[in-house]
């Protein structure tokens, strides 16, 4: 198979998911090729990073390609695919990939599957993904090529070394753009930086009623309270306390996940913590797949007991 991996970069750095896409491509290409594509105003330097994991690299550059824009990026990618037809197009399951992939799929008139975490090619292409926020999995069969897939970050970390040749093409979008990039807005910084805390007591939707107790526990442990997205969305905690892909990435010594289901968007922000303890009343909760220790219990019942034990011990 001829597998193309659309790379991503921001502020002059390749998103690591781009290399993972190439690892994935090398795994399933068979006697075909893994080919990286990178789009930007000047992407020569970044191309060489990709070349280390690809059979070939396509650097699509042009003055109108400086900022990511799904319209201009899809346009030049389609110009390439017209001449170099893909069997499979891979993108990261990222804020960019989630826009570009379906647009490419419609233009290529081909099937698409998002957030893929596994694949096999014997007897046709079958891909695996989670559904119901990580509680179940599905294997999906794709009957025709080309196909477009977005691939979850952090899954295909191991790969082989290659030395692909870089081909640079200067391209301009063929149509006027109707979406205009304006600016990137930096995150607002609050009083404390949760990514520096040694202990994090993380409050999920299931522990929102116990927020006060969680705050007390965090201060007893000289740690910080953080939250999952619904807790931040509902205004209970400030935005800079959100852990996950659209919030902060944290690696504390202890991460106590209270009433958090363990959706991948949350897990990506805390999975590298030294000790992860999860409390959840649902034994099926996916958080137990990342936690080192789990307690199946109601947070409202356990937390007061835990607080008094910690107080005892500190005396």
């Amino acid at each position: 198979m001829r597998v193309f991996a659309v790379a991503e970069h921001r502020l002059g750095e390749i998103n690591p998911v781009s290399l993972e896409l190439l690892n994935f491509a090398n795994k399933i290409k068979g006697d075909g090729t893994s080919e990286a594509v990178i789009v930007g105003d000047d992407v020569r330097a970044l191309s060489s990073v990709l070349a280390g994991c690809a059979d070939k690299v396509w650097a699509l550059s042009g003055s109108q390609l400086e900022h990511y824009n799904p319209e201009s990026h899809a346009d030049v990618l389609l110009q390439l695919f017209e001449k170099e037809p893909p069997d499979l197009v891979l993108l990261g399951n990222t804020s960019q990939g989630c826009e570009l992939a379906p647009l490419l799929a419609v233009r290529l008139r081909c099937p698409i599957v998002t957030d893929v975490v596994g694949a096999s090619v014997e007897g046709g292409l079958i891909v695996s993904r989670y559904i119901y926020q990580g509680k179940l999995m599905v294997d999906l069969k794709l009957n025709r090529t080309p196909c477009v897939l977005t691939v979850r970050q952090g899954v295909f970390k191991e790969g082989i070394e290659l030395r692909g040749e870089v081909t640079e093409l200067r391209l301009t979008p063929s149509k006027p753009l109707r979406r205009r990039f304006s600016r990137i807005i930096e995150p607002e910084e609050g009083e404390i930086d949760v990514s520096k805390a040694e202990v994090i007591v993380a409050v999920g939707r299931g522990a929102a009623p116990s927020l006060k107790l969680a705050e007390k526990l965090a201060s007893l442990l000289n740690g910080a309270v953080a939250g999952s997205r619904p807790v931040i969305d509902s205004g209970l905690l400030a935005k800079d306390r959100q852990v996950g892909i659209s919030g902060k990435t944290v690696k504390p010594k202890v991460y106590l996940a209270l009433g958090i289901s363990g959706a991948f968007q949350h897990v990506m922000g805390m999975k590298d913590s030294e000790l992860i303890i999860a409390v959840n009343k649902d034994p099926q909760a996916p958080i137990f797949n990342v936690a080192h220790y789990g307690v199946i219990a109601d947070v409202q019942e356990l937390l007061p007991k835990l607080l008094s034990k910690v107080e005892e011990r500190r005396k």
Binding site: P111, I131, V138, D139, K141, G294
Partner: peptide
């Protein structure tokens, strides 16, 4: 359809030691 469900199942991994 353009994609076909082969199988739906409970994810295999379970890392946590339950207290």
């Amino acid at each position: 359809p353009s994609v076909f469900v082969e199988r739906i199942y409970v994810p295999p991994t379970r890392r946590a030691e339950i207290l």
